[in-house]
């Protein structure tokens, strides 16, 4: 087992900043780096300004989304091109329930999980029986359907979306400052790492890998490939849905354009860039996704063009992503 991998659940947030440097090969040095980065992540709000916090909160948010999609793409080997739809399901569930029905924010999370599961089963159930290519295009269509529905219904606020979503509070403490949200999303990202790690190293995680490598052989070993893929798809959906709830709470306003096709592609890029199926790789991918446009602000709308070219080059020359493969 990869040693860094095993350190990920506790300090998952920082595992991704290492590189394939020789110095990092010793476990002691890795621990030093990890501890330093964990400390940095913990105390960042004390030493930086709001801009940095805003960007880093966004990073943790994308870490969660990318790890969720990684379960579908990286673990189960399925291409999901409508991942933003689940993120939309979560965000709109929170938005609608809090602003139209006055439901407490925390209670909207189980509702969002439930809706994400339903959406995942409705889309995944029929399509996962077929060749995996169909899933890609059906999820693409599903992403569009969700966006169009959000645009055209009254309850979702139409094209202008929902505004004035209440900020959540916990035991009387209102989560309102950016530094509060920083910690909330940091916690979510750590949780996502932990859950991903545990799932990967379990009976279920192995089953995903069997199905990914050889569906027929897996089926011959008594593995129900449709059920196993659906499992991955639904768990990915839950990650997206929960991330969506917190997104709505942080932004206090959501609109259908947040959940366009490009959003799904961006999340996918994060997964592909760092290395599909590898937790530290996916974390690096999410960092790159958020930090790159911040550093190169002049790019504007060409940013996705640059990302697409990077994605093509990676697929052609380094399909395993930035993070190095395990040595055997």
């Amino acid at each position: 087992m990869d040693r860094l991998d095993s350190a990920a659940p506790g300090n998952g947030d920082v595992a991704g900043t290492g590189g394939p440097l020789r110095w990092l090969e010793s476990q002691k040095n890795r621990l030093i780096v990890l501890t330093f980065l964990a400390g940095l992540a913990m105390f960042l709000p004390l030493i930086s300004n709001n801009y940095v916090l805003e960007v880093m909160t966004n990073v943790w948010f994308y870490v969660m989304l990318c790890l969720g999609l990684n379960i579908v793409v990286g673990y189960a080997g399925l291409l999901d091109l409508g991942y933003a739809a689940f993120f939309a399901v979560g965000a709109y569930t929170t938005g609608i329930l809090t602003s139209h029905f006055g439901v407490n924010f925390w209670l909207t999370i189980p509702a969002a999980v439930l809706f994400s599961i339903c959406a995942g089963v409705i889309i995944g159930g029929p399509t996962l029986r077929l060749r995996s290519d169909y899933l890609a295009i059906v999820t693409l269509g599903f992403g569009e359907i969700v966006r169009i529905i959000a645009r055209n219904l009254e309850i979702t606020g139409g094209a202008s979306g929902l505004i004035g979503i209440e900020k959540p509070s916990l035991f009387g403490f209102e989560i309102s400052q950016i530094s509060h949200f920083y910690y909330v999303f940091l916690l979510l990202a750590c949780l996502a790492c932990f859950v991903s790690y545990r799932l990967q190293h379990s009976r279920l995680g192995r089953a995903w890998q069997y199905v990914r490598e050889d569906e027929d052989a897996a089926e011959a070993m008594g593995i129900d490939r449709v059920a196993i893929k659906l499992y991955a798809y639904v768990i990915g959906a839950i990650f997206g849905g929960v991330a969506g709830c917190f997104f709505a709470a942080k932004m206090t306003a959501i609109s259908p354009e947040t959940f366009m096709f490009q959003q799904s592609v961006l999340i996918l890029l994060g997964v592909v860039l760092g290395g599909m199926g590898k937790i530290p790789g996916v974390i690096i991918g999410a960092f790159a996704l958020v930090l790159f446009p911040e550093v190169f602000r002049d790019l504007g709308s060409s940013r996705i063009l640059v990302f697409a070219i990077v994605m093509l080059v990676i697929m052609l020359y380094r399909p395993e992503g930035i993070w190095p493969e395990k040595k055997t």
């Binding site: 080997g77 290519d133 994605m311």
Partner: peptide, 24 residues
């Protein structure tokens, strides 16, 4: 000859390059 997932992602990347190239 690569896994199916890889060629699908490649096709997606080409699609994004074309549309965003024209966008630019």
């Amino acid at each position: 000859s690569a896994p199916r997932l890889s060629i699908l992602i490649t096709a997606l990347a080409v699609s994004m390059i074309l549309s965003n190239g024209v966008l630019a």
